[in-house]
Amino acid sequence: MPSKSPAQPGERASWILKISAIAALLFLHIPMWLIFLYSFTTEESAYSFPPPGLTLKWIPQAIATPAMQDALFLTLKVAALATITALILGTLAAAAVYRYEFFGKEAISFMLVLPLALPGIVTGIAMRSAIGLMTIPFSFWTIVIGHATFCVVVVYNNVLARFRRTGGTMVEASMDLGANSFQTFLHIILPNMASALLAGAILAFSLSFDEVIVTTFTAGNQQTLPIWIFSQMLKPRNRPITNVTAMLVVLITAIPILIAQRIVASSHDTEGNK
């Protein structure tokens, strides 16, 4: 049926809609950019606006702070191990859910998303209870286990989505042409999954890198970078250093995420093999 008029009603956004959309975006972004501005302010003890002057001197000072370095190093180690664990567990779960029919299949996604969907404090206090009840000493590993648990779902979602998009017949085609399971995995599954795995890994890494709530309950006295920043905020001792560290965290998490998004987007482009 031909449309009644060439200009479809409601096709152009009204200016009210545009302004509200832009306002929401600015609300979402301006505070983050302020962090960058304050990393260069000459003022040491207050958040005066506008900054009385700009300087680069805090950046080398912040990087040279031992407590910051220790925290950064610990955070990187935790995030790396949590990511690897989440990659293995999330991929296995996604493959099982994609390939097979089994009882309770729907419950799997539900269970995996719980640590992220329930308030962080629940996972935190639950693990704290387990640690307390079984008198497990706080350690590097208690942090990793906590982080891995809520990172699994990120990998799972990414990998499962890719499985669903690439479809099962490719695996059958490979086996049909003489490749056994291992060859099929190497030549077909891995190349097609690689970018989804990478994207999932990056997201899991970012999630772990700035997690603070669960970590508070599983870390004992150890300070990851977010916890260090948090403690700095509670008792401001060295604001310029905190500002620079905050900027650093933004960069460390945001840049990989940009890359991850690119990966996911480019795999959409090369698809088209339906």
Binding site: V212, I229, T253, I257
Partner: peptide
Amino acid sequence: WSSYVVRVY
């Protein structure tokens, strides 16, 4: 995805 603590800050 990024910097919960920093955004709070």
